[in-house]
C-alpha cells in the first residue's frame, strides 16, 4: 500500500523537488541567499537556482570540505549560504569544517543534506546517510530540521533562512505525501506538531516516518487504539514540553525514524522522557547495521521502517503500559 494511503494522505512529488522549488523561491525573494553545490545540483535539485541566479550559485566541485569552509566565509560577508550536497557525502567529508568553521563560531550558515536515510535506494549503503542526524547532533550550535511533507519543507526552508545561526536540513530523494495544507502549515522551529490526536499512546516521528506513523495510527484505530502522532520536525532545539505532555497524557511512546537508533531522534526523545516523565517506550529505526541497494519500499520493509512495524511496536508498548 502506498505511503499515506491508509491515513488518506494525498500523494506529492519527491521531496528533493519540493526542496528545489522552495530554495528557488527563497533565492528569488532574498538577495542575501547564495547556494553552494558539490557538483550534484541535478541530484539535489538546486539546478534551477544555478540557471535563474548564476551569480549567486557556486559549484565548488567534488570537494565538500572546501565547500563548507567557503560557505562559512560567505556567511561572514553577510550572505546566507545554503551549502548543499548529498547528506552521506557532505556530513562525512565536511564534518571537520562544519565543526570548526561553522559550529564553534556559531556562523550563520545553512547546510542541506539531500538523500537522507535509506530511501535513496539503489545507489546503496555508501551513499546513504543513516547517521546524519547523529553527526549534526554532535555539533551543539546547529538547529536540526527534518521536514515530513511538502508544506513543512517549504516552511523549513523559509524558517532556516530567517534563523540566525547554523541550521541543518535533511532533504530526501523520495516523495512524502501531503500532511498539512500548503497555505496554512503550522511549522515553527522547535515546536513539534500534533499531526493526529489520541490518548492511548504517542507515536513520535520525523521525516518520512510521520506519514508512516499516520498510517499506523489509522490501522491502530481500526483495532480501537487511539494514537497521537507527534511530528518532531526539529531535533534541536527539542520540544521538551510536547514530549513530556505526550508521556503524561498518553502514557506510552513509540519513536519512528529513518536513521540509526544509535544517536538518532528516538534516543534524544528517550532522554527527555526518562528525565521528566518515564513511560514505556519502543523504538522503530535502523539497528546497528548498514543496509543494501534496492527499491526504497523494499528496503523500508526489509529493515523494519513501515507502518506495520510501528503498529507492532505500538501494540507492545500499550501492553507494557497496561501491565504497569
Amino acid at each position: 500500500m502506498p505511503l499515506g494511503d491508509k491515513a488518506g494522505l494525498k500523494p506529492a512529488k519527491p521531496m528533493r523537488e519540493v526542496f528545489g522549488e522552495a530554495l528557488l523561491a527563497l533565492v528569488r525573494e532574498n538577495e542575501r541567499v547564495v547556494v553552494l553545490d558539490g557538483d550534484l545540483s541535478n541530484t539535489t535539485k538546486t539546478l534551477a537556482v544555478r540557471e535563474a541566479f548564476p551569480e549567486r550559485f557556486f559549484n565548488i566541485g567534488l570537494a565538500e570540505s572546501n565547500m563548507v569552509s567557503i560557505g562559512a566565509g560567505l556567511a561572514d560577508c553577510g550572505f546566507i549560504p545554503f551549502i548543499t550536497s548529498m547528506s552521506g557525502f557532505l556530513l562525512t567529508n565536511g564534518y571537520d569544517q562544519l565543526r570548526l568553521n561553522i559550529a564553534i563560531g556559531g556562523v550563520n550558515a545553512k547546510v542541506v543534506g539531500s538523500h537522507g536515510g535509506i530511501t535513496l535506494g539503489k545507489d546503496g549503503p555508501t551513499a546513504m546517510a543513516i547517521e546524519d542526524l547523529a553527526l549534526v547532533g554532535g555539533l551543539p550550535s546547529f538547529v536540526i530540521l527534518v521536514p515530513s511533507d511538502p508544506a513543512t519543507m517549504h516552511a523549513a526552508v523559509r524558517a532556516m533562512a530567517a534563523w540566525e545561526g547554523p541550521v541543518y536540513l535533511r532533504s530526501s530523494r523520495v516523495a512524502m505525501p501531503h500532511i498539512y495544507p500548503m497555505d496554512a502549515c503550522p511549522f515553527e522551529i522547535g515546536k513539534a506538531i500534533v499531526a493526529r490526536e489520541g490518548d492511548d499512546l504517542t507515536i513520535v516521528g520525523c521525516g518520512i516516518m510521520v506519514a508512516a506513523a499516520l498510517d499506523a495510527a489509522a490501522m491502530l484505530a481500526d483495532e480501537g487504539i487511539e494514537a497521537r502522532v507527534l511530528d518532531l520536525h526539529t531535533l534541536r532545539p527539542l520540544d521538551e514540553r510536547a514530549l513530556v505532555a505526550a508521556a503524561r497524557e498518553t502514557g506510552a511512546i513509540v519513536t519512528a525514524e529513518e536513521h540509526l537508533l544509535h544517536g538518532g531522534m528516538g534516543s534524544n526523545v528517550a532522554r527527555i522522557v526518562a528525565e521528566h516523565y518515564p513511560v514505556p517506550m519502543r523504538f522503530v529505526g535502523l539497528a546497528d547495521t548498514y543496509t543494501e541497494s534496492g527499491d526504497p519500499e523494499d528496503l523500508l520493509a526489509k529493515y523494519g521502517l513501515t507502518a506495520e512495524d510501528i503498529v507492532l511496536a505500538a501494540k507492545e508498548v500499550v501492553r507494557a503500559k497496561r501491565r504497569r
Binding site: I70, A72, G73, D76, C77, L100, N101, G105
Partner: peptide
Amino acid sequence: NTSGSLGKGISLGIGHVLGGRL
C-alpha cells in the same frame, strides 16, 4: 576565524573573496 584544526584558511578566504565580489 576559528582555527586549530588545520587546512581551512584558503577555503575560508575564497568565501571572503566571493562575498566581496557580490
